[in-house]
Design a protein around this nucleic acid. Structure first.
Length: 595
DNA sequence: GCCGTTTTCGGCCCGACTGTTTTCAGTCG
C-alpha cells in the first residue's frame, strides 16, 4: 500500500480552498466555518497531521471530526480525494489566486473571474489588473468606480508581498509600535494607549499592529493617528482607523471611552479563537460579549460596562487570563476552575547559560563580540547570580585532538582567573560556569574529544548542520546526542527554526520529551527574536511530559543578554511556571543539577 | 461539518467598515 505525504500547510491550504469553494457554491455557512476552523487548527499544530494519521489520532485535532477524518484518510491512502476534487471542479480555478488580494473574498473573486472570463490561473491577478485599468469593473453589478480603484490599489499591495506571509519578528514589531506609541502620546486627546493583538499576546511573529486608545475625544485622537507620517489611510470611522505604513505594515487603531476600556482590551487582544471560545461559553450562560461590554441575551439589551479586564473575566465566573495564554489551549476551562498556572516572570530568572564571549578558541562558527569582563558587567546589571559561557566548540576539522584538549584547558583557566579578578574588583560573587555549545554531528555524536569534556562544567548540544534529515533520522540523532556524554545538560535551540527563513527540522518530539525527562536534560528556550526556540506550542506539550527548560539569551554580544524577556514570554505562552525553568533556581540549587 | 458542566440534535461570536444600496452583502479581524 502506498502512502502519500502532505505537509500541514498543504492540508490547511486545501481546507481553505474548500471553504472558499463552499462559499461560492452557497453551501451551509457553518460547514464553511468548520473547514476554516479545521484549516486554522492544522496550521497551528505542533505535530504533523500525517503522523497523527499514522497513530490514528486525528480526532485529537480541534475542529476535525468524523467526516474530515474520512476525507484525510482517503487523501493519505490514495493521494487524492474524490469529494474535494468534485467540489473544486465546480469552481473556476482562477478564483483562488485572487483570494490573496486584500478586499477580495470568494464571492467577488467568483464574480470577477466568471464575468471577465479570467480563466488563466497563472496570470489571473495580472489579467484582473488590466481589466480594472480598462474600466471594465466599474460597470459590473455590485461594483462601482470606487471598488475598481480599490482593487487596483490592493493589487499593488498584494504584489509588494502579502502581509500575511510577510510577518515580522516580535522584536521588530516592538520597535515599530514604540514609535507609533510615542507619536500618539504627544497628543492631548489621549489618556492611555496600548499595543494589543498578537503584540500583547507576545506571539513570535507579528502581522498587523493593533493599538487601542482611551480617549474622550475619539475624533481628534483618530485624526492625529491618521496624520502619522509616511502612511496611507486604509479605512477610517468613528471608532477607529487603519493605516498602511511605508514599510508595508498595517496598523489598526480602536478608540474607546474609559467606561468600556476593559471590554475593548479584552476584545482587541484576541486571539480570535480565544474570543470565539469565550463568547461561545458566555452564550451558554446567557450572555453576549462585545468590545462594549456584556449583555444578557434575554433582556432589554442593556450593556454592562467594564473599565478593566479583570472585572470582565471575573463577571463570567473565571480568573483574569494573562494575554500570553489566550490561544484557545484550554485556558478558559482552567480559568473557570481557578487553575491557571502561576506563570514564570522576568524577575524569576537568576542566570543565563548560553553566552558567547570573544575568547578565541578557533571555532567553526562565530565568536562573541565582547570580553568576559563586559559580559560580567551586564550580568551584574541584570542581577544574575551565575552565568554560563557557552562558546562554540573548537573546529574539529582544523585541529588535532591534542590541540583541542589544550585549547579547552587554557580556556577554562582563562575564564576562572578573569572571573576571580572581576569579582574581586567589583565586590561581587557572580559564578561563571565554564560550558560549551557543542555541535551534534549528523550521526548524533558530539563534536568534542572525550577528554576535552574534563575542561567544562556542562554542555549545550546543538544542531548546526544537516538540517534536512528525515524525521526518523533526526529523532534518533537527537536521542543519541542526549546520551553521548553525561555532561550534556541542555539541547540548544531544539527545532533549529529561523523565523521567516527556515522551518524547524522534522522530529518526533514526544520521543525527545521522554528521553529528556528520563535523563534530566533541559530543552533550551532560546531568546533570540529570530529563533524563539523551543516554540511556545512545543513548550506547552513538553511540560505535559514533565520536561524542564532553561531560558537562554544565546548572546553573541553583551547587549543581546537583554533579550532574555523574549524567551520568558515564550515560556509563559507555553504555560511555564517558575518550577519548570531551571535557571530560576539559586546558585546553590542549580549546581546540583548542572554539575 | 463540528460539538456537548444546558444538548447526540440544534445550535454555531460579534461588530466595524465599505460600497452600492435604499436595507444589505461582502470582507475583515
Amino acid at each position: 500500500m502506498s502512502e502519500h505525504h502532505y505537509t500541514n500547510l498543504q492540508i490547511a491550504a486545501l481546507f481553505k480552498k474548500m471553504a472558499a469553494a463552499y462559499q461560492i457554491l452557497n453551501e451551509n455557512r457553518f460547514k464553511i466555518i468548520a473547514y476554516e476552523r479545521a484549516a486554522d487548527s492544522i496550521e497551528h499544530l505542533t505535530s504533523e497531521v500525517k503522523d497523527l494519521w499514522d497513530d490514528k489520532k486525528l480526532k485529537d485535532i480541534p475542529g476535525v471530526g468524523d467526516q474530515i477524518i474520512a476525507h484525510l484518510d482517503e487523501l493519505f491512502r490514495t493521494g487524492k480525494n474524490k469529494h474535494f476534487d468534485a467540489t473544486m471542479a465546480k469552481v473556476p480555478q482562477g478564483v483562488f489566486p485572487l483570494l490573496n488580494v486584500p478586499g477580495i473574498g470568494p464571492k467577488r473573486a467568483y464574480k470577477l473571474v466568471t464575468e471577465l472570463k479570467l480563466h488563466n490561473e497563472k496570470s489571473v491577478v495580472d489579467d484582473l489588473q488590466k481589466a480594472a485599468k480598462k474600466g471594465k469593473i466599474a460597470p459590473m453589478e455590485g461594483f462601482g468606480e470606487k471598488s475598481e480603484e480599490d482593487i487596483l490599489k490592493n493589487i499593488e499591495i498584494y504584489k509588494k508581498g502579502s502581509i500575511k506571509e510577510n510577518r515580522i519578528t516580535l522584536a521588530e514589531a516592538d520597535m515599530i509600535a514604540a514609535e507609533i506609541l510615542s507619536f500618539m502620546k504627544k497628543h492631548a486627546s489621549i489618556n492611555q494607549i496600548d499595543a494589543l493583538g498578537s503584540l500583547r499576546r507576545r506571539v513570535a511573529t507579528i502581522g498587523d499592529i493593533d493599538i487601542s486608545i482611551l480617549s474622550d475625544k475619539p475624533k481628534s485622537a483618530i485624526e492625529h493617528f491618521c496624520s502619522y507620517p509616511n502612511q496611507k489611510i486604509i479605512e477610517k470611522g468613528p471608532t477607529g482607523a487603519s493605516i498602511l505604513l511605508h514599510n508595508g505594515r498595517q496598523v489598526d487603531l480602536r478608540v474607546q471611552e474609559k467606561k468600556s476600556y476593559g471590554a475593548m482590551l479584552q476584545y482587541f487582544t484576541g486571539s480570535k479563537n480565544h474570543n470565539i471560545q469565550l463568547r461561545t461559553y458566555a452564550l451558554s450562560k446567557g450572555y453576549s460579549l462585545s468590545e462594549y461590554g456584556i449583555k444578557k441575551t434575554k433582556s432589554d439589551g442593556k450593556v454592562m460596562l467594564f473599565d478593566n479586564e479583570k472585572d470582565f473575566y471575573n463577571y463570567l465566573g473565571m480568573q483574569w487570563i494573562p494575554p500570553e495564554l489566550r490561544e484557545d489551549r484550554g485556558e478558559i476551562a482552567a480559568a473557570l476552575q481557578n487553575k491557571l498556572p502561576a506563570l514564570v516572570e522576568e524577575h524569576d530568572i537568576k542566570g543565563d547559560f548560553h553566552i558567547h564571549t570573544s575568547f578565541n578558541l578557533e571555532p567553526s562558527h562565530d565568536l562573541g563580540a565582547d570580553s568576559i569582563e563586559d559580559i560580567l558587567d551586564t550580568a551584574s546589571l541584570l542581577n544574575y547570580q551565575y552565568i554560563g559561557v557557552s562558546d562554540h566548540n573548537p573546529s574539529v576539522s582544523q585541529h588535532t585532538e591534542a590541540k583541542i584538549i589544550d585549547i579547552m584547558k587554557r580556556r577554562k583557566e582563562f575564564y576562572l582567573t578573569h572571573t576571580d579578578k572581576w569579582n574581586e574588583k567589583h565586590h561581587r560573587n557572580i559564578h561563571v560556569f565554564v560550558m560549551l555549545e557543542v555541535d551534534i554531528d549528523p550521526e548524533g555524536h558530539l563534536s568534542l574529544p572525550e577528554k576535552a569534556f574534563d575542561s567544562v562544567d556542562a554542555v549545550i548540544a546543538s544542531i548546526h548542520s544537516s538540517f534536512q534529515q528525515d524525521r526518523a533520522s533526526m529523532t534518533s540523532r537527537l536521542i543519541r546526542a542526549l546520551s553521548d556524554n553525561q555532561k550534556v545538560k541542555i539541547i540548544g535551540h531544539p527545532t533549529g527554526r529561523l523565523l521567516g527563513k527556515r522551518e524547524g527540522y522534522e522530529v518526533d518530539w514526544m520521543k525527545i520529551f521522554e528521553e529528556c525527562k528520563k535523563r534530566d536534560v533541559a530543552l533550551e528556550i532560546n531568546s533570540s527574536p529570530y529563533r524563539l526556540d523551543l516554540p511556545d506550542s512545543l513548550v506547552f506539550d513538553a511540560i505535559k511530559h514533565g520536561v524542564r527548560f532553561v531560558v537562554n539569551s544565546d548572546a553573541h554580544a553583551k547587549g543581546e543578554m537583554m533579550l532574555m524577556p523574549y524567551g520568558v514570554t515564550v515560556a509563559r505562552r507555553g504555560w511555564s511556571q517558575k518550577r519548570d525553568i531551571y535557571n530560576t533556581s539559586s546558585y546553590n540549587e542549580i549546581i546540583k543539577w548542572l554539575t
